[in-house]
């Protein structure tokens, strides 16, 4: 199977980059042959929406899964909508992360991170109505 690992360097022995949207490289690995190639992440320097642009790059490589440290609330629905599995909690090198995945030691996540509720102290003052707030949806 073909997977994508977020990496801080261009080869299999580079430490993984725990950030999805702003990682330096995506290493595309065939887990059967361990053949791989590196793609520079041009979203790393995006001012906003890095996770979204990174997800678009990854989606174009037709991988089945992404292995990374954590995925932000923007990239999560994007990867899901592209049908890509998300495996988080990876540490060590790219090679080690792929091994761990093969041994079933990585966690596959299917729901976005916790939603955070707003709070209302000191907001009285006759302003009426609290602050309705949805899910965390931003990752710049």
């Amino acid at each position: 199977m073909k997977v994508c690992v977020t990496s801080s360097g261009p080869d299999m022995d580079s430490p993984i980059d725990p950030r999805f949207g702003r990682c330096a490289y995506f290493i595309i690995v065939d887990t059967d042959t361990m053949q791989h190639n590196a793609i520079e992440n041009d979203a790393a320097m995006a001012s906003g929406g890095a996770g979204i642009r990174a997800a678009q790059t990854v989606a174009s490589t037709n991988v089945e899964a992404v292995i990374t440290g954590s995925v932000g609330p923007n990239a999560h629905p994007a990867l899901q909508s592209a049908g890509i599995k998300i495996m988080t909690g990876a540490v060590g090198t790219v090679r080690e992360a792929v091994q761990k995945m093969k041994q079933g030691q990585l966690q596959q996540i299917s729901t976005p991170g916790p939603a955070h509720r707003g709070m209302g102290m000191g907001r009285g003052r006759g302003m009426g109505g609290g602050r309705g707030q949805g899910r965390g949806r931003r990752n710049m």
Partner: peptide, 18 residues
């Protein structure tokens, strides 16, 4: 220019805050 849209497998996602 603001990465507010994502083209998925079967739909386009909009990120309004972008």
């Amino acid at each position: 220019q603001f990465n507010a849209l994502f083209v998925g497998k079967d739909r386009v996602l909009v990120y309004p805050e972008m």
